[in-house]
Design a protein around this nucleic acid. Structure first.
Lengths: 111, 111
DNA sequence: GGTTGACACCTATAACTACTAGGTATAATT
DNA sequence: AATTATACCTAGTAGTTATAGGTGTCAACC
């Protein structure tokens, strides 16, 4: 890993990509900007992070891709598969579980 | 990384260790059990994770260690330094920022 | 006396994954 | 003509967690 967003980012690209695509079909560059905007620049996942993530998710069968030319530009659109929806359900559940546990530790109680 | 806790764990061991030690001096084995208990087994950071984390944090000057024999057992107690407190403040702030941003994406809005 | 289990520490290696830093190409804008 | 924005890509780096071992002590049990 490296400097920009630093720690706490493992699993986040996959989670956010699946989240965005569970709403609508999107292409890579659009996802990059989408995450920047949606988080008010708090989270910046550059193209070098998003593209490999998309390829990996496609390879695992969570996404499926098709090329389209829109407004004179060639784009690769990704949409989520049924398998991908299950995967998203699983990891978002896990995200909630882990963040809740960590927050419990941060805020208060342990022996 | 590996299977047990899977993703979303990067930075978490450091965060939790600094958190626990910002309350009171503790030793490694105690921290391992402490995290298990505090999270109701949701997060299990084994000794193979905690000990290297403690050594790393000590090396960076965030923790300081001393050996003590208590109840006939030799233990290595760690306490947080001033530098460690700053570090904890920084990363817990970052934790809040990132989780808030991710949650915003998960729950609702983006373009 | 010997075995088991809890306590308490340790490390090398593997495995994962995000990030950097490049690169290519086209269309629109200045 | 040059720059910027769009749109894609990948190789290599590096930072970390997790696994799977290992050592040794002490108490309890059979």
């Amino acid at each position: 890993m490296a400097k920009t967003n630093a720690a706490f980012m493992s699993g986040v690209p996959e989670l956010l990509v699946l989240r965005l695509l569970s709403r609508e079909e999107m292409y890579g560059y659009q996802i990059v900007r989408g995450i920047r905007q949606a988080t008010g620049e708090s989270i910046i996942l550059a193209e070098g992070v998003i593209y490999p993530t998309l390829h990996g998710l496609e390879k695992k069968g969570y996404l499926s891709a098709r090329s389209r030319t829109v407004e004179g530009r060639s784009r690769v659109y990704y949409h989520i598969t049924a398998k991908g929806k299950k995967r998203f359900a699983a990891i978002s559940k896990q995200w909630n579980k882990i963040t809740a546990s960590v927050n419990a530790c941060l805020e208060f109680a342990y022996v």
